[in-house]
Structure formats: structure tokens, C-alpha cells
Design a protein around this nucleic acid. Sequence first.
DNA 1: AGATAATGTTTTAGGCTTCAAGTATTCCGC
DNA 2: GCGGAATACTTGAAGCCTAAAACATTATCT
Lengths: 163, 163
Amino acid sequence: MSDAETLLADAPAGHKDELRLWLRLLTCTNLIEAEIRRRLRADFDTTLPRFDLLAQLFRAPDGLTLGEVSRRMMVSNGNLTGLSARLEAEGLVERRALATDRRATTLRLTARGRRAFSAQSTAHEGWVAELLGGLSAPERATLFRLLARTKTSARAATEDTSP
Amino acid sequence: MSDAETLLADAPAGHKDELRLWLRLLTCTNLIEAEIRRRLRADFDTTLPRFDLLAQLFRAPDGLTLGEVSRRMMVSNGNLTGLSARLEAEGLVERRALATDRRATTLRLTARGRRAFSAQSTAHEGWVAELLGGLSAPERATLFRLLARTKTSARAATEDTSP
DNA sequence: AGATAATGTTTTAGGCTTCAAGTATTCCGC
DNA sequence: GCGGAATACTTGAAGCCTAAAACATTATCT
């Protein structure tokens, strides 16, 4: 969340180019994400993690186990324990023991949870369209493609040692 | 930090394009940021917020007030109270009362803080170059330019009501 | 000078996040 | 079917983060 360009003056070797690109990528994402968080709080009194969890469950009418959600959201198990407990307390999510495996718990949206997410999701999509509205369709297409290349590059560098 | 593509199936209206772009932007950034956090912890036993604060102070030999750092890092005041306290406890940062304004505190790197940041900064720059190494120089240039457009677009949508 | 406003920081309450350790249950090899 | 390994989740400690209230100091207005 740091201000971009800050590290540039200190860059020692010859990779300023990549550093500048990374800082701008970070700035863009943080800018948009902060605004989305702000609006989620202002308009729906909720948070991005809550919204993300509802999104996962919305697509799984039969529910998901905590572990499954944890993998899909790429967050730790312990994190989901608290998050789902809060959402259950708010009446948006229901926890039920899994009959076939008594270790596991399934999470499922309540009717109220479905209604809440539908409203939030519609607004969210509009916000994103608004925030990216300054780009033309061709610009968006090029950016999308280059980000795919970026993703591939980062994954390759990340999984170098662990296939 | 949620898995991308998840929200797409639920997208109600006609802005799937922008949503897809946003989710990919988010995925890319999170992927790279997570790897940087992982390496900061593994190689230097530190965190990104600590690193960011050191970076700010490295460029300001005369020190900065908490408020100044807070603005540059785009982070709340209260946050910096704790962060700077931890770094002071580790001996990397020094707090000193400001003579001309007894409300304010200036933060400054210690010699040890400067050494620590230098090492971290060099490594950090290498990591970023490695993670973005899959892109050619022209690709990086185009991406950089499109992200500038994205930043402008997002800022325009953010500051609509508050000039 | 005295009241009031503005500024700089800390505190408080709460949420998000991870890692590591602990508990419960299931699976697997024998 | 029994014992050990693997799996699913929870708990606990610690850090990061915010918003709002409290506190201290400085600036301003009259």
C-alpha cells in the first residue's frame, strides 16, 4: 500500500525498469481495491473478505467445506474459522456438519445471504466498470493480454523450485 | 486475495469485460506481492510494511514526522504508532521529539537500519526483476503506459465528488 | 490574553491475516 | 481391528490495519 516511486531512488543495480513497473502495478491495484473496500463499507457496511466468501458460496448451492473455501480463496484455514463465524453471526451463512465426514463443516448461504450478495455483486460490478471506464475496449484487451503474460512470468519465477 | 474468475459467473449486467480485467489485475498483483512477502520473511525475517517504512526513511536522512510518513505510505496514523514502535524496539529506527513542535515526533533510521534496508532493497529489486523477467522490454513499456491510463481512470472515478 | 479551532499523536475496539500447536476424525497397512 | 499417518478444523499468539475518540500542543481570532 506504499506510495509508488519511493523505492526508485534507492535502486542499486540495473533493474529500475522492472521496479518501476511493479510499483505502478501495485499503485493501480491498491487504488482500485481501496475504493472498492471504501464503497463496500459505505454502501453495505461490509468488507472485501466477507464479500469474497459470499461470492464463493453463491456459486455453490450445495455448500462447500471450510477447506474447499480456504483453497479457493487462497487464505489460511484459521482465517476462515473466524470469518465464517462472523458471517454466521450476521445470519448470512449457515454451518452444518457434513454427514459423511464428521471432521468437516459445510458452509452455505442463507436466503438472506443470497439476497445480500446479489445486491453487493451488482453494485460491485458497476464500480469496477466505472473505475476502469477511462480505458477503451482495445486498451482493455491489450492490458488483459499483457497481464496474462505477467501472471505466467510471476508463476514461473515462483514455482522454480517446487513443481 | 480471492481466486479470480470467481465472480464472473455471477456478473449480472454487461460489464463482464471490465470485471475480468480487474480480477486479473488483482491476481497478478497478489501473486507477486505474496511472493515478495514470503521472501522478505524467509530471507530477512521481516515484513512488507516494515520494509516500506524503512524505504521512506532511507530517502530522508533528516528524518520525517509520523504524519509525513503516514501520508506518504497512505496508511492511518494509528497504524504508524505501532509499526514505528516495533521497528524502534528492533533498533532500526530512532524516535526523537521535534524541537520546533512538541506535538510531533521525527523518525530516522539508525546505522543498523540503514544497513538492513540496503541489503533488503538490493534483494527486493532482484526479486522484482526475476518475477517480471518473462516480459520483453517493449511489453513492459506498453504495460507501463496502460497502467498509467488505468491509474488516471481510477483516480478520476475516485475523486468525482471531492476535488 | 483567552477562547476556539486546527494539528500531531496515541489509544481503543474491532476485524483480517498468518503460523504453529492442539483436537477430532478418518484412512491405510497389516 | 488396531496403530500410525493423514486430514479437517479450531485455538492462541502476534502482527497489520482502520475508524473514532481522547489527549497534547500550536495557531488563530478578537
